[in-house]
Amino acid sequence: RQGFVPAAYVKKLDSGTGKELVLALYDYQEKSPREVTMKKGDILTLLNSTNKDWWKVEVN
């Protein structure tokens, strides 16, 4: 499932696989259909980080 999360809630990881991955630093509950819920410690695939406030991710 793809959607947006606050950029301040995730940290980029060095995956070494060519995929950009991020680590969820905090729990986040989606507040609109365009967002996704994540739990602290989740590893997500980063799809787009051009917006400084909201990053598009895919929940694996």
Rank of each mutant, 00 (worst) to 15 (best):
R1S: 07
R1Q: 09
R1T: 08
R1A: 08
R1M: 08
G3F: 08
G3V: 04
G3N: 01
F4N: 04
F4W: 15
V5A: 03
V5S: 01
P6V: 03
P6W: 04
P6F: 04
A7I: 03
A7H: 03
A7S: 13
A8V: 10
A8P: 07
Y9R: 05
Y9V: 06
Y9K: 07
V10M: 06
V10A: 03
V10E: 00
K11S: 10
K12N: 05
K12F: 07
K12V: 09
L13T: 05
L13P: 02
L13G: 03
D14S: 15
D14M: 11
D14L: 11
D14I: 12
S15G: 12
S15Q: 10
S15Y: 14
G16C: 12
G16A: 15
T17P: 14
G18I: 10
G18C: 13
K19F: 10
K19L: 12
K19R: 14
E20S: 14
L21T: 09
L21R: 10
L21W: 10
L21G: 03
V22T: 02
V22M: 04
V22P: 00
L23K: 09
A24S: 05
A24P: 00
A24Y: 01
L25C: 07
Y26A: 13
Y26L: 12
Y26V: 12
D27L: 02
D27T: 05
D27Q: 03
Y28H: 04
Y28W: 10
Q29S: 11
Q29M: 13
E30G: 15
E30K: 13
K31T: 14
K31E: 07
K31G: 08
K31R: 15
K31P: 04
K31D: 06
S32R: 10
S32E: 08
P33C: 10
R34F: 13
E35D: 05
V36Q: 03
V36G: 02
T37S: 15
T37R: 07
T37D: 04
M38I: 15
K40H: 05
G41Q: 02
G41W: 05
G41F: 05
G41K: 02
I43V: 12
I43R: 05
I43P: 01
I43F: 05
L44M: 14
L44H: 03
L44S: 02
T45R: 13
T45I: 15
L46M: 03
L46D: 00
L46F: 03
L46K: 01
L46I: 05
L46Q: 00
N48R: 06
N48G: 06
N48A: 09
N48P: 02
S49A: 14
S49V: 07
T50Y: 09
T50E: 14
T50L: 09
N51H: 13
N51S: 09
K52F: 10
K52D: 10
D53Q: 13
D53F: 15
D53C: 13
D53L: 15
W54T: 02
W54Y: 06
W55A: 03
K56I: 14
K56R: 11
K56G: 06
K56D: 04
V57Q: 00
E58H: 05
E58V: 07
V59G: 07
V59M: 11
V59H: 15
V59N: 08
N60F: 13
